[in-house]
């Protein structure tokens, strides 16, 4: 199962993350602020947070795979 998950995360498929990450970050940040500068700053922080969170999940899955 994990191998198929890693195959699904090929670099080509990861590009699908970019528009989604951009849209989600901007929309979420826009619901928290009214002005463009704080919206942009919040969106950048939120996007980084999402990427780090996904990297942690990826690392955990990778660890589980190693120990199985």
């Amino acid at each position: 199962m994990f191998e198929s998950m890693l195959i699904a995360m090929s670099p080509a498929n990861l590009w699908h993350l970019v528009p989604l990450l951009t849209a989600v970050s901007l929309v979420y940040a826009a619901t928290r602020h009214e002005l463009l500068v704080p919206i942009t700053a919040h969106a950048v922080r939120f996007a980084i947070w999402i990427v780090v969170f996904m990297a942690i999940v990826f690392g955990v899955i990778q660890l589980i795979e190693w120990f199985m």
């Binding site: 849209a23 989600v24 929309v27 979420y28 826009a30 619901t31 928290r32 602020h33 009214e34």
Partner: peptide, 16 residues
């Protein structure tokens, strides 16, 4: 995402 936008239109931004 549009649900968030609808709430923002109805109530304004959620300030932290």
């Amino acid at each position: 995402l549009n649900v968030l936008a609808i709430y923002d239109a109805w109530a304004g931004p959620v300030m932290a």
